[in-house]
Amino acid sequence: MWLILLMVILVWSGIGLKGLRKKGSVKDMATYIILWAIGTTGLMLYRFGISIPTPLDGIAYIYHPLSSLWKQWFA
């Protein structure tokens, strides 16, 4: 299933890239390629069971002082 999914992703991104090339916007093409690469890498890492830290950990770290204050207030 994953192989089919990867093939679909690659073909789909190729079709989209072809369309953007005709339009001729380099910025659009670069953004498109970077976002496809991030998305596909994320899915493949998940497929191979390589653990990626959740971005929520970083957000929780930033808000830690406020959330601990909240916990104390409502304890």
């Binding site: 992703i9 789909w12 991104s13 989209g16 498109y32 976002l35 991030i38 998305g39 596909t40 994320g42």
Partner: peptide, 10 residues
Amino acid sequence: RSITIPMGLI
């Protein structure tokens, strides 16, 4: 619209 599909994947 050009980035909706890759953003969907992300």
